[in-house]
Structures are given as C-alpha cells and as structure tokens.
C-alpha cells in the first residue's frame, strides 16, 4: 500500500531523512519509535505532504504522491492525521470539528455529515460531548475528538504523531483504547509512539529510527526484548527505566 524508495529530506543543510526504504502493507499496524529528532514525525508527515521531500519517491497504492501535479488536497482527504497537540478547531464544537471537512469538500450533506459525526463520536465514547467546545474537554477527550475528526474522512490510512505524548498519564489509556479498536477493525495505521504496551499488543511491526535512518525493523516482541542495533538497545533500556536516562539520577 505504501512504499518509500530512497527517500531523502533536508531542512537546509540538516538531513532529516536518509535513504528511507520501506514497504507497508494494507491493514498493517506499524509503530515508529526512536529518540526525539530521529526523524520519525518527519517520516509520517511526508506521507500526507505536510513535509516535502528532496529525493526518492513515496508511493501510495502505486501512485507517486510527491510527483508534480498530484492533487494534494485529494491525497490528504483520504489520510487521517492525528497530531500530538490535537489541533482541534477551538471555535467549533466537537460535532462541527467532525463535519467541517466532509461538508466543505462536498462529500456529504450537512445532515449526513452530522449523522456520521454522531456515530464517530459514539465510537470514540464521546456521544454526549457532541456540542461541547474543545476547551470544555479534557486532553484525552480532545484527542478522541481529533481521532473522530480524522475518521470522518473515511480514510483507508491513519497516521498518528505521538498521539498520547501531550496527555496526562491517566488519559493515555482512553486514547490507546480507541486506537486499539481501530487496529482491530483492520485499519492501516502508522503510529509514532513510545507506548510499549500498545506496540506489543497491536503492532505488527516496529520501526526504530535514529539520525533520520530506519535502523531496525522487528516484531514488537523481538524489538522490546532483543533489540539488535546498539542504538536500539540503548533506547529500549532508556524507555524501560525513564529516570535512569537523565543526568542527576
């Protein structure tokens, strides 16, 4: 479904992605992890062209999405993207957040969009919050609305950019539960996350990135129990003992 071929990306003179080659199949759940600045967010942001690339090609369903002339809006409207900072539209209710795009893009009538939005909010456990504004919701609830908003595009592919990193610990579970449900329903998902439990339970594969390269590809069990690359070993050790990593402990 997705194919990276020799993808390179620079920010000025800094190379953020180095010779990325990877294939992701339909229905696969892939977890991308790695230290901050390793290029993992950049990697998934190239998939809906929030970031341009300078070398190589990226194909989705056989189509080169970075080719000139690609309809970028059509591409994005078929990929769900969930941000670390939620980025809900604060001037709109939860329901309106979910109906905005389908109506503006002319896919659904306002009535159909509202019906779909209610169903999606129900699916993420927030049917009773349809008329709440984002500021009236907790972080976990906001992120679940953001997932519903992305699902309103009926996307065959969902991208998650550290969806639980901005959440208080007690809210992580509710968001992961929604993501687990999606994975079980066969959604193709690429998740940048450090949630080991989530990775072990639902991921088909783990990609470990550092310095803009994919250094290791493994099943979750192999990756977390027997990392091969020295950097991966260090990383797994650090996230197992979070307090041992920083100075002064």
């Amino acid at each position: 479904m997705i194919r990276f071929e020799g993808v390179n990306k620079w920010y000025g003179s800094y190379q953020a992605l180095v010779d990325i080659d990877e294939t992701i199949a339909k229905g696969e759940v892939v977890v991308v992890c790695g230290p901050s600045g390793s290029g993992k967010s950049t990697l998934i942001r190239t998939l809906n062209r929030l970031e341009p690339i300078q070398g190589g090609r990226i194909e989705i369903d056989g189509r080169d999405i970075h080719a000139p002339g690609t309809d970028v809006n059509a591409l994005r409207s078929r990929i769900g993207f969930v941000f670390q900072q939620f980025n809900l539209f604060p001037h709109l209710t939860a329901l309106q957040n979910c109906t905005l795009a389908p109506v503006q893009l002319g896919r659904l009538t306002p009535a159909q969009a509202a019906e779909q939005a209610r169903a999606l909010l129900d699916r993420v456990g927030l049917a009773n919050k349809a008329d709440a504004y984002p500021a009236e919701l907790s972080g976990g609830q906001q992120q679940r609305v953001a997932i519903a908003r992305a699902l309103a595009q009926q996307p065959p592919l969902m991208l998650f950019d550290e969806p639980t990193s901005a959440l208080d610990p007690e809210m992580v579970g509710e968001v992961l539960a929604v993501m687990r449900g999606l994975a079980r329903d066969g959604m193709t998902m690429i998740c940048v996350t450090h949630e080991m439990g989530f990775a072990r339970e639902v991921a088909d594969r783990v990609l470990f990135m550092d310095g803009g390269r994919i250094l290791e590809r493994a099943t979750p069990a192999d990756f977390f129990l027997h990392p091969q690359h020295p950097r991966a070993q260090q990383f797994v050790a650090d996230i197992r003992r979070p307090f041992a990593a920083g100075p002064g402990f």
Binding site: N48, L50, N73, A74, L75, R76, S77, R78, I79, F81, F83, Q85, N87, L88, F89, L100, A101, Q104, L105, R149, A150, Q153
Partner: peptide, 16 residues
Amino acid sequence: RGQMEAARSLGLTHFQ
C-alpha cells in the same frame, strides 16, 4: 501553524 496544518491535513484548500 497547528490550525492551518490540521485544516490542510483534512484536505481543505488553503482558502477553505
């Protein structure tokens, strides 16, 4: 940038 990015990632045009 977050709001613009979120809107664009839903497939809205720049003007929408």
